[in-house]
Amino acid sequence: MAAVNQPEVSDKVAVEIRKMNKWFGTFHVLRDIDLTVYQGERIVIAGPSGSGKSTLIRCINALEEHQKGSITVDGTLLSNDVKNIDRIRSEVGMVFQHFNLFPHLTILENCTLAPIWVRKTPKREAEDTAMHFLTKVKIPEQADKYPGQLSGGQQQRVAIARSLCMKPRIMLFDEPTSALDPEMISEVLDTMIELAEEGMTMCCVTHEMGFARKVANRVIFMDEGQIVEQNEPEEFFNNPKSERTKMFLSQILGH
């Protein structure tokens, strides 16, 4: 697989996670997570199910609350203050496994709602931006339809466009292709690759190892709520260090 042109990674920190711990009830899901993401970096988080990788990125925009340690997003320390959380969320885009488009709004309204009400962008301008990003994900002609009328791949691309309309500085992807038919995975991955080439800071939880090889600057392997191994993709896939990583890779790349 040909490597895509990799934009420069700056030395400015986008997300800094220090000694972060999280429990679901008494279950210790995340244990002492230390992670620094630099601006322009593309990180892929892999690991078996239940390893806490989704929970980790959901902590970054406070969809899950962490109990110990600190998370700093774009220079702002995540606290319990509602306004602080809302501000961080408006800077961090998120794409979900099940798209989570708003079914009662048209595609265009899905994309303009947050810019109009959170960013206070004038309606006309928000619509222009929305059409720009819908064109970028190659579905401008669907703008007046409702999500229920689109295919899964199209819906996920709309979800990406909806996040981009907020002009986020960081994008989080929570298994964006796991709910898609095989034929539709590549159209979503193409969109994500394009985004990566433009230098967007991205944290992707995904099982698409081809995507990880092609796009990521760093692959993080998690198991049992902790980071087991992280490395550049070449090293990670060709020369994994930990036994657990070797086993995981042999299982998912075995076929």
């Binding site: 925009n61 509602v82 809302d86 979900f96 708003f102 709602l113 009400w117 959170v118 907020m166």
Partner: peptide
């Protein structure tokens, strides 16, 4: 679905919005 609440939250909409 819980995802609707999460999608609204993740876009930075406040509670009332």
């Amino acid at each position: 679905p819980k995802g609707q609440y999460e999608a609204a939250d993740s876009l930075g909409l406040d509670y009332a919005q």
